[in-house]
Amino acid sequence: MKIELTGRTALVSGSTKGIGRAIAAGLARAGARTVVNGRSEAGVRSTVEELRAEIPGADLAGVAADLGTAAGADALAERVPAVDILVNNLGIFGPRPVLEIDDDEWRRYFEVNVLSGVRLTRLYMPGMMERGWGRVQFIASDSAVVTPEEMVHYGMSKTALLAVSRGYAKAAAGTGVTVNTVMAGPTHTEGVEDFVAELVGGDLPWDDAQRRFMAEHRPQSLLRRLIEPDEIANMVVYLGSDLGSATTGGAVRVDGGYIDAILP
Rank of each mutant, 00 (worst) to 15 (best):
residue 1 M to C: 11
residue 2 K to A: 15
residue 2 K to E: 14
residue 3 I to K: 03
residue 5 L to F: 03
residue 5 L to G: 08
residue 7 G to I: 11
residue 9 T to F: 07
residue 15 S to F: 01
residue 18 G to C: 11
residue 20 G to M: 01
residue 22 A to K: 00
residue 23 I to N: 07
residue 24 A to T: 13
residue 25 A to W: 09
residue 26 G to M: 08
residue 28 A to Q: 13
residue 29 R to G: 05
residue 29 R to Q: 12
residue 29 R to S: 05
residue 30 A to Y: 02
residue 32 A to H: 09
residue 33 R to F: 13
residue 33 R to M: 11
residue 34 T to H: 00
residue 35 V to M: 02
residue 37 N to H: 10
residue 40 S to Q: 12
residue 43 G to H: 09
residue 44 V to T: 03
residue 47 T to A: 12
residue 48 V to E: 02
residue 62 G to H: 06
residue 63 V to P: 11
residue 63 V to Y: 06
residue 67 L to Y: 00
residue 68 G to H: 05
residue 71 A to L: 01
residue 75 A to I: 04
residue 78 E to V: 07
residue 78 E to F: 04
residue 80 V to L: 15
residue 82 A to P: 02
residue 83 V to I: 14
residue 83 V to L: 06
residue 83 V to H: 09
residue 87 V to W: 04
residue 92 I to M: 08
residue 93 F to P: 05
residue 94 G to S: 12
residue 95 P to C: 00
residue 99 L to C: 06
residue 102 D to Y: 02
residue 106 W to F: 02
residue 110 F to Y: 12
residue 111 E to W: 07
residue 111 E to F: 07
residue 114 V to H: 02
residue 116 S to A: 13
residue 117 G to N: 02
residue 118 V to W: 12
residue 119 R to A: 13
residue 120 L to I: 07
residue 121 T to V: 13
residue 122 R to K: 13
residue 125 M to V: 15
residue 126 P to F: 08
residue 129 M to L: 12
residue 129 M to T: 14
residue 130 E to N: 07
residue 133 W to P: 07
residue 133 W to M: 10
residue 136 V to W: 06
residue 136 V to C: 05
residue 138 F to K: 04
residue 138 F to V: 01
residue 139 I to Y: 03
residue 140 A to Q: 00
residue 143 S to I: 01
residue 144 A to E: 01
residue 145 V to K: 06
residue 146 V to G: 03
residue 146 V to L: 01
residue 153 H to D: 12
residue 156 M to W: 04
residue 157 S to N: 00
residue 158 K to L: 00
residue 159 T to R: 00
residue 166 R to Y: 00
residue 166 R to D: 01
residue 169 A to Q: 08
residue 170 K to G: 01
residue 172 A to H: 08
residue 172 A to G: 05
residue 177 V to W: 00
residue 178 T to W: 04
residue 184 A to K: 09
residue 185 G to D: 06
residue 188 H to E: 14
residue 188 H to L: 15
residue 190 E to V: 09
residue 191 G to K: 08
residue 194 D to H: 08
residue 203 D to Y: 10
residue 203 D to R: 14
residue 206 W to C: 09
residue 216 E to S: 10
residue 217 H to K: 13
residue 217 H to G: 06
residue 220 Q to E: 12
residue 221 S to V: 03
residue 224 R to V: 06
residue 227 I to T: 14
residue 228 E to W: 04
residue 231 E to A: 11
residue 232 I to M: 11
residue 234 N to I: 00
residue 237 V to A: 04
residue 239 L to D: 09
residue 239 L to R: 08
residue 241 S to I: 10
residue 242 D to S: 13
residue 244 G to R: 05
residue 244 G to V: 04
residue 251 A to W: 01
residue 252 V to F: 15
residue 257 G to R: 13
residue 258 Y to F: 12
residue 259 I to W: 05
residue 262 I to R: 14
residue 264 P to A: 13
